[in-house]
Design a protein around this nucleic acid. Sequence first.
DNA 1: GTTTCAGCGATTGTATACAATTGTATCATA
DNA 2: TATGATACAATTGTATACAATCGCTGAAAC
Lengths: 212, 212
Amino acid sequence: MDRRGHTSEDLTSLIREEILKEELRPGSKLTEQQLSSRFEVSRTPVREAIGRLEAEGLVETIPNRGAFVVGLSAVDTADLFEIRKHYEVITARNAAERADKVDFERLDESMEFMRHYTERGDLRRMKRINRDFHEALYAAAKSRLLLVSIRRVNIYLKLSVHTKDYRREHLTEILSEHERVYRAVKKRDPEKAAMAMYEHIANMSRRALKKQ
Amino acid sequence: MDRRGHTSEDLTSLIREEILKEELRPGSKLTEQQLSSRFEVSRTPVREAIGRLEAEGLVETIPNRGAFVVGLSAVDTADLFEIRKHYEVITARNAAERADKVDFERLDESMEFMRHYTERGDLRRMKRINRDFHEALYAAAKSRLLLVSIRRVNIYLKLSVHTKDYRREHLTEILSEHERVYRAVKKRDPEKAAMAMYEHIANMSRRALKKQ
DNA sequence: GTTTCAGCGATTGTATACAATTGTATCATA
DNA sequence: TATGATACAATTGTATACAATCGCTGAAAC
């Protein structure tokens, strides 16, 4: 294999993915030696990977006992949705205040693609563009710490809930909600942007929960 | 010295504190060997500490180059206040929904002390009781993930900004705000609790900024 | 039969040794 | 003198060795 100094980083991604896919079940123990022999590396990068995952909140370590895959209760998941909602709202508000030329270009582009894919009913690409749009907002908000937190929450949600939040019949609805956020940011109206985002996220939750 | 297995954890706190107090300036490089000799430990726990701080967003590492202090900008601090406000609001809402008998007893006790110290004008003890009250709310909210985040934010704020947020002339005001939150939680009125907390935090900011 | 505690195995935590990478300084050459 | 290549020093990344800790087992005492 061709590992050039990135072992630790790669390992983090690998283990994270296994946790997200529930191949490593919540509650199960992460033994350093097991992982190191499985991935054919020493314990050192394994420890670093586990450390990162712990900071991300995907695993929990008990001193001198080991690391355990963290499981989320229903309450935890509900909290996460709530937390993310507020993160997104703050982000939208800050984006409206702080977006610069580059951010606007990125947002413009995202919206262009989104309109296009909505028209074509391309669900898969819409999902990706949706992420791009929100990422563009995060960037525009220029809140470094918020970014770290929101990324973590998104990881948690990806881990805990398997939503079919995108349905074809909702595409135009979603588009128009995004448009509203977009226009508010563009007009540099922080409160309007915050409000629009609040409603968008609330609607997303409603749509996700509609029929499971 | 008496270091029993907690070296890495302690190191993280020590370095974090130095960064937040700007004893380690933003942009400066964190050399592993320097830190390890300064704290008289090996490079291993130093690396783990740096890894954690990187995950927190306080340092940034460039592969094969090293770790650099990022620190908190003015914008970061403003964001932290905003983030904390929302954390406290969510906490209050959840506390109103989820508090059990033990939580109520703890809240009752906090409020009792608070009334007492307000009457006596004991600033120092009020500050401590204030923390207790909020901690009791965190516990009542039963949001594990929120707790982790809010603790971190509080540490950041405590170490990075030096506010004189408590003045004697504000004590009764603060007390009555707390009473409102308390009563809403006690009545299990989540929205009222959230609202009361929102105003309380907003007022705290206003008071803190009043005359610096 | 139950309880307690000592010893052992397994695992984590830390230190050190080694490999790989990067940046710099030196020297040769155009 | 400027430029580029190469050797070297410094530093990070990884592996391994050693120490400390925890939980379990099993035997002895009651």
